[in-house]
């Protein structure tokens, strides 16, 4: 579904990502791991079009690397960004309404809203509350619901468990598992590698902008992971 060839991202003289090849097949959950500053977010942002990048990004066999982010969303990509980035001054309902802006199926939007309220019951009581007043966990749930509202076929999740209490992290991973079970294709960036690898089919490990490892998640879940993170 998604195919990336020789992706490079530079910020001035900093090579955040270099010559990265990566692919995600339909229905797969792929984990993208690596230490802080490895280039994970840069990769995600290059895929969605928020940062300029060299190389090629293909969705369904079509080159999308020249498209602005809004048109990549329309091709079926969606991102729950690092740091959540909910619209703080807008209510939960308004956040979701914006995500549905490009959809014409009113009934479908209503059905999806109900579905997300079931997935994240805490949001239901807060529909008309400014998103900035939500707790970190609630904001993360809103960020995921908002990404799903655009009806993606490939969901990009950048550190959905960052800074959250264990119980909330648990809930987030349950939701990711449910989405996967429902057939959603997911590219997941996580610091919480052990957790991510339990769900993932395959994994990529970045280090200093370069690919360090790729393969089945099962193989990586062993002690090899630790050595990769520390020694490389």
């Amino acid at each position: 579904m998604l195919k990336i060839e020789k992706l490079s991202v530079r910020y001035g003289t900093v090579h955040a990502v270099q010559d990265l090849d990566l692919a995600v097949a339909e229905g797969e959950l792929v984990a993208l791991l690596g230490p802080n500053g490895a280039g994970k977010s840069s990769t995600i942002e290059a895929i969605i079009g928020l940062v300029a990048a060299g190389g090629r990004v293909e969705m369904d066999g079509q080159d999308i690397s020249r498209l602005p982010p809004e048109l990549r969303i329309r091709r079926g990509l969606a991102l729950s960004p690092e740091g959540r980035r909910v619209f703080a001054g807008l209510t939960v309902a308004e956040n979701l309404r914006l995500a549905a802006a490009t959809r014409r199926d009113r009934a479908g939007v209503r059905a999806d809203t109900d579905r997300f309220m079931e997935l994240f019951p805490v949001l239901r009581a807060r529909m008309h509350q400014p998103a900035g007043t939500l707790s970190g966990g609630e904001q993360q749930m809103l960020a995921i619901a908002r990404a799903l509202m655009t009806r993606p076929r490939l969901l990009l999740l950048d550190e959905p468990s960052l800074g959250l209490a264990p119980r909330i992290v648990q809930r987030i991973f349950e939701v990711i598992a449910e989405l996967k079970a429902g057939g959603m294709t997911i590219l997941l960036v996580e610091q919480n590698a052990a957790h991510a690898l339990r769900l993932a089919d395959r994994a990529y490990v970045l280090g200093a902008g370069r690919l360090q490892y790729q393969g089945p998640a099962r193989d990586l879940a062993s002690d090899r992971l630790m050595s990769l993170y520390i020694g490389g």
């Binding site: 928020l50 982010p69 619209f87 001054g89 914006l98 802006a101």
Partner: peptide, 24 residues
């Protein structure tokens, strides 16, 4: 209106508005 709400959102974080598929 959706366009009006998008304008309010864009005042805070334009990039994320684009992530909703809304044309900048």
């Amino acid at each position: 209106t959706t366009l009006g709400i998008a304008m309010r959102a864009a005042a805070g974080d334009f990039a994320t508005v684009r992530l909703q598929g809304i044309r900048a």
